[in-house]
């Protein structure tokens, strides 16, 4: 369970976040959706303690994000940002291995190696594990990053727009992997998504953010309605019945 209480943040004069009060339940996928600049990513980075807040408190599984030691938090929550550029040339396995740092401090044990292998297998990167990241396609690279945060074995996994720059096939693949991680590995996954239909199909909870505040929180069934989506996205949205559930049409 992740709890946000009266969280506020103001920066760069025009952007302000909050006050946000929110409870994200344990288990499943929670999708943060909303228009551009609504503050989804900011909220996610604050939960992942990469960004401080001005006011309020965030608790993850009972641990206060601001006061808990970062190295302890690294075993409870992991976060992957959108842009990942590294100055070193790393193989997939080396990258995923970094996920073990909170436990091993860089000295990989046999248990670590097994966990790394499992994470790599889980994202179907087995045959690519000794390839360098710059030799991979965008979709493969994105899976390698996700494998790294899964390898961190945290109950809570935060992902900032993991579908960014992925084509249809790879987006679907990624969402299936995340769904499996939530069900098979019992992870609580919070993910910023741009496409409301991916949220509707794969998420267990949807949290709609607008102008720095949480405006809706609920199951896909309650969020995927004409009225709610039109209000959140400020554009005419019609929800129709698709072959796999509700489908938002906005053009």
């Amino acid at each position: 369970m992740i709890t946000l209480r009266d969280v506020r943040k103001s920066y760069e004069d025009e952007v302000t976040i909050g006050p946000v009060d929110l409870q994200i339940p344990t288990g499943g996928i929670t999708a943060l959706v909303g228009p551009n600049g609504a503050g989804k990513s900011t909220l996610l980075t604050m939960i992942g303690r990469l960004l401080g807040m001005d006011d309020g408190a965030i608790e993850i599984a009972g641990y206060d994000v601001a006061s808990t030691a970062s190295k302890d938090l690294a075993r409870i929550v992991s976060i992957l940002r959108q842009e990942n550029h590294f100055i070193t040339r790393l193989t997939v396995r080396q990258l995923v291995g970094f996920g073990r740092f909170p436990y091993s401090k860089g000295r990989l044990t046999q248990h670590c190696e097994d966990t790394i292998s499992k994470a790599i297998d889980f994202l179907e990167l087995t045959e690519l594990e000794h390839r360098y990241l710059d030799q991979l396609s965008g979709g493969q690279r994105q899976r390698a990053y996700v494998a790294m945060v899964l390898c961190q074995e945290t109950d809570h996994v935060l992902l900032d727009e993991p579908l960014n720059n992925l084509d249809m096939k790879h987006s679907v693949q990624m969402m299936r992997h995340l769904k499996r991680a939530a069900t098979e590995l019992d992870r609580t996954i919070i993910v910023v998504l741009h496409d409301i239909n991916f949220a509707g199909r794969y998420a267990d909870h949807i949290c709609a953010v607008k102008d720095g505040r949480v405006v809706e929180f609920g199951t896909p069934a309650t969020i995927m309605t004409d009225e709610v989506l039109t209000r959140v996205f400020d554009t005419e949205v019609q929800v129709i019945d698709g072959p796999n559930g509700a489908l938002a049409v906005y053009y």
């Binding site: 980075t45 992957l80 740092f101 860089g106 961190q152």
Partner: peptide
Amino acid sequence: RARRLNVLTLGRDATNNLGLD
């Protein structure tokens, strides 16, 4: 600190994520 330096090559966000300040 060599192992910590290895983590630092991943950049600020990834380093903080892995529990290093």
